[in-house]
Design a binder for these strands. Structure first.
Length: 583
DNA sequence: GAAATGAACTAGTCCATACG
DNA sequence: CGTATGGACTAGTTCATTTC
């Protein structure tokens, strides 16, 4: 038998009006039409019974074909004629105890309801293997009395039929015993096991999940670990947003800036932080550490003999014998050193209960020239004190809500530089001796130091101090040869080319990002590099030239072309190592 | 038709906390 | 203590569109 003939045979076999998956609308229509036609058409006197029967079928078929247009319902007259009698038999011999179901069946699948169906819904139906009936009318389809062995397997596939079988089984076999909890569970489990596969296949939803949709059952799908966490996170996010919105209500400021066309633009910005001014911190530390200071008045210095002064200088390693300095020079030097304090800034970011925070701390550096050593203090007061620990207690400078993005952290530069400019404002001890304060060091973890120095974060040049190539950081010799790049040098590197200069002045936090080819050529030629043709080659050259320098040091962000001395940071250095936390 | 441009994506870095 | 998760960043790839 050829393949085509095989397929045809299967198709012919498949057509049946009583198959469980035959369209309900088709069945009901065929039945109603054949009844109406039989009642309405009177037999011609000349016609034989067979001829009359033929006419009835012909008329029924015509009405049927008119109602169901389209290939999915196509059926030829002969087949229709052959398949009609079993259907008539089903309807006429429908179980008399289930007339209600029969009535409902015919109502639901009435011609009227079919007409009301929108075209999209109609398209779901077909004479055989009707998906529309299977998915949307399975309850009513299950009323149709299919007991043929041939179709039993098919009917079992319908979860409704399976459920009905189970229920009737339970009714007939129910024993009136007091079931234990375990038996109860086992029975329910069995029902689930039998029903679940058919249900899931039909509705593409696990049975349990579908049960959870029924309100009366009061069931809930158990959330997975991931879902639980997600829920919790969403909750945190919500709380964060509500806090932020409240902050916005109270802390909105206005500022005037120039746009690209030189027009003054008023814009709003939010401040979500608090600051102790550097001046307050300096005064506070001066007061707290006064008992440890080896403070002398001007008179006392002038009363010191030459040998005393030289001895004091020697003690702090500041006496240079080769240099021939006179006594007044040495005295001034000693006064300067003993009245100069050095400070260190620490910066870090952290998340506290899902909110990102930024902190700047300021610490005074212990200097034996200014403060007593532990031994000296013990001789003086008989107390055993760790002077350095007392002196180097860190003070909170700025604490604020801020994301770790550079752009956001740079918003705090203005207020920092404002404080640094006032570093030269004189403050005096109780005895009226003026002290000089110097901002000396910066320390923090890698991202913090990268932020402060203007180095890129990550990538191939992540070292915030020397910009060593990431591929070679394990070569000791290479690392030792890599030079410390000072903040002033970094500033010069950025400003060397016209584009870097222009974009820095525009306060672009990434002046070398996304340059066009023309800009790349200009930038490179200003740096004496004339190689490269294609854009990617030029980009690579510039990357190598900058070795990770991304912008001017953070403190110069607002005044990129001014010297560090304008913000009293000429001695400011970023420490090359990552220390322990201050707090 | 090659190069430039821009968007979207992946993979990897470091930082950190939350949680069982 | 290990795992999960998230943000911010660099670096590289792919793909489609535009420009020269």
């Amino acid at each position: 038998m050829s393949k085509l003939a095989n397929i045809t045979r299967i198709l012919v076999i498949m057509i049946s009006l009583i198959h469980p998956h035959t369209c309900g609308f088709a069945r009901a229509a065929a039945w109603e039409f054949t009844r109406a036609v039989t009642a309405n058409i009177t037999r011609d006197e000349n016609a034989t019974p067979k001829q009359h029967q033929q006419r009835v079928v012909q008329e029924t078929y015509t009405r049927f074909s008119n109602m169901f247009v389209g290939t999915t319902f196509s059926i030829d007259l002969q087949t229709f004629q052959r398949k009609l009698p079993p259907l008539r038999k089903k309807f006429s011999t429908w179980n008399s105890r289930k007339t209600k179901e029969r009535q409902q069946y015919l109502e639901v699948f009435s011609a009227e309801n079919w007409k009301k169906l929108p075209a999209v819904r109609k398209a779901e139906h077909s004479l055989m293997n009707c998906q529309g009936c299977f998915h949307r009318y399975s309850v009513y389809q299950s009323f149709f009395p299919v007991c043929s062995k041939e179709f039993k397997g098919c009917s079992m596939r319908s979860p409704i039929a399976v459920a009905q079988d189970l229920a009737s089984n339970m009714r007939t076999n129910s024993a009136s015993i007091n079931a234990t909890r375990k038996e109860c569970q086992q029975a329910a489990q069995k029902i689930h096991d039998v029903l679940s596969p058919a249900f899931e296949q039909t509705y593409r939803t696990p049975l349990g999940e579908a049960f959870a949709m029924i309100k009366e059952m009061n069931l809930q799908t158990k959330k997975s670990k991931v879902e639980k966490k997600k829920e919790r996170r969403d909750c945190y996010k919500k709380a964060k947003l509500s806090v932020e919105s409240k902050w916005k209500e109270t802390e909105v400021w206005k500022k005037l800036t120039l746009d690209d066309n030189g027009q003054v633009v008023e814009s709003e910005f939010e401040v979500e932080g608090r600051k102790h001014s550097l001046l307050d911190i300096r005064k506070k530390i001066l007061e707290q550490s006064s008992e440890f200071m080896r403070e002398k008045s001007d008179e006392q210095y002038y009363e010191m003999s030459e040998s005393d002064i030289i001895g004091s200088l020697k003690a702090i390693g500041e006496y240079n014998e080769a240099k021939d300095e006179d006594i007044s020079c040495l005295r001034q030097k000693l006064i300067r050193i003993e009245r100069t304090r050095h400070f260190k800034t620490w910066h870090d970011l952290s998340t506290v209960s899902n909110h990102s925070h930024l902190v700047f701390m300021v610490t005074l550096l212990y200097d034996p020239a200014v403060y007593y050593t532990n031994e000296e203090f013990k001789i003086k007061t008989k107390q055993e004190v760790d002077v350095q620990a007392k002196v180097e207690v860190p003070q909170v400078h700025i604490i604020a809500r801020s994301s770790s993005a550079d752009s956001e952290q740079l918003a705090y530069i203005e207020t920092r530089t404002e404080c640094l400019c006032k570093l030269t404002d004189p403050i005096s001890t109780e005895n009226g001796n003026e002290v000089t304060d110097v901002m000396r060091f910066f320390h923090g973890d890698s991202p913090a130091r990268q932020y402060e120095s203007g180095q890129q974060k990550g990538g191939h040049f992540y070292c915030p101090v020397c910009g060593a190539n990431a591929h070679r950081v394990y070569e000791l010799e290479y690392c030792l040869r890599s030079k410390y790049i000072s903040l002033a040098e970094r500033q010069q590197v950025v400003l060397q080319g016209p584009i870097g200069q222009k974009k820095s002045l525009e306060r672009n936090n990434k002046p070398f990002a996304k340059l066009s080819k023309q800009e790349l050529i200009r930038e490179l030629s200003a740096r004496g590099i004339y190689e490269g043709n294609r854009k990617d080659e030029l980009e690579k050259l510039l990357t190598d030239e900058l070795h990770g320098i991304q912008r001017v040091p953070a403190l110069l962000f607002h005044t990129p072309n001014k010297g560090l001395e304008t913000i009293n940071c000429q001695n400011y250095e970023i420490l090359p190592f990552e220390p322990l936390h201050d707090i």
